[in-house]
């Protein structure tokens, strides 16, 4: 009996761990798309963030500094996306695709530079800490490898991700800035006639989305694992994008969708660990197949922000 409970704990725990990178990135997606700018470059931003986090954490031995710098790295790519899409009215999908090439390209180039020609970083000395260990000491609060320990004794990034969901929800729905972001995403001309700068809001939102995607990458490379490699992100950014859409462009919805996709990953790892005689390659496809099934299932039931993907151009006046 206890074995079964612990198995469930294991699945929940891995679900939380793997949902976290998705949640950060997905929240980034919510912010930018609610302001009306499509950002399919989340994948590239996440990839770059994962690299920056591991590199900084390796050289400074400080995972938190790596975490922050990953955000800044993502924000830098976000800035490029904003310059292209907001100032120069570039097609947002095309710019996003460019970011998806640029992020990994930049990461691998720098990786070869810093790590002796390798396309992966060395193992970092200190991962993001486990706050329960930090606060109460190892094995003090919950029995090691027991249900509670498996579920709650998780990296700080896991807790941060859930806090961030709350924060984004609050800012979006309860503050002046959030209302303006929504207005700009629904009807930029209306916001403009009321003296709100559509450009400024969109710049802010796109840069923030890059920051969050960078954090998502970091929570992969310096928490879930302890190094960056070029196959680490492999589509997580796109799954986060899908989660954002499945979550109906809402932070709370995106969170639930990420937990669902993370759950598929957790289940996959559980089956792998139990030695179920199914090819691991097939198991690894589980989250992606789930993405397709879920997205097909919800077609036609969601309403994206009205001005999404549309170029706002004041210069014609």
């Amino acid at each position: 009996m206890e074995a079964i409970i612990n198995d469930i704990g294991f699945i929940i725990g891995t679900t939380l761990m793997y949902s976290t990178p998705l949640m950060f990135t997905s929240l980034g997606g919510v912010i930018t798309e609610r302001s009306g700018v499509v950002n399919i470059g989340l994948e590239g931003m996440m990839f770059f963030g994962a690299f920056v986090a591991a590199t900084v954490a390796y050289y400074t031995q400080n995972p938190w500094l790596g975490f922050l710098c990953a955000g800044l790295g993502g924000a830098f790519l976000g800035l490029l996306h904003a310059i292209a899409c907001v100032s120069f009215a570039a097609e947002q999908i095309v710019s996003g695709i460019a970011i998806n090439f640029l992020g990994p390209g930049l990461a691998l180039f720098l990786s070869r530079l810093f790590f002796d020609g390798a396309t992966q970083t060395l193992t970092i000395p200190n991962k993001i800490p486990l706050p329960l260990h930090f606060l109460f000491g190892e094995g003090k609060l919950f029995k090691s490898a027991g249900f509670m320990d498996l579920v709650f004794n998780r990296f700080a990034t896991v807790y941060l991700a859930f806090l961030l969901v709350l924060l984004v929800w609050f800012v979006l729905y309860k503050t002046k800035v959030g209302m303006r972001v929504q207005a700009v995403g629904e009807h930029p001309e209306a916001a403009d006639t009321l003296g709100i700068s559509v450009y400024r809001i969109r710049y802010g939102a796109v840069i923030m989305s890059g920051f969050f995607a960078g954090l998502g990458g970091a929570s992969m490379s310096i928490a879930v694992v302890s190094r960056f490699s070029n196959t680490l992100i492999s589509g997580h950014g796109f799954i986060a994008l899908a989660a954002m859409i499945f979550g109906k462009w809402k932070p709370q919805g995106a969170m639930l969708a990420c937990l669902l996709f993370g759950g598929a990953k957790g289940f996959e790892i559980f089956l792998g660990a139990k030695g179920v005689p199914v090819s691991s390659s097939l198991l690894a496809m589980l989250p992606y197949i789930l993405t397709i099934i879920v997205l097909v299932g919800i077609v036609g039931k969601t309403t994206p922000p009205a001005a999404i993907g549309k170029i706002f151009d004041k210069s014609g006046k």
Binding site: A183, A190, A191, I196, A306
Partner: peptide, 13 residues
């Protein structure tokens, strides 16, 4: 802004 309430639209900005 269609999904906003009357009040939100009036005070926007």
């Amino acid at each position: 802004v269609e999904p906003f309430t009357v009040t939100q639209n009036i005070i926007l900005g």
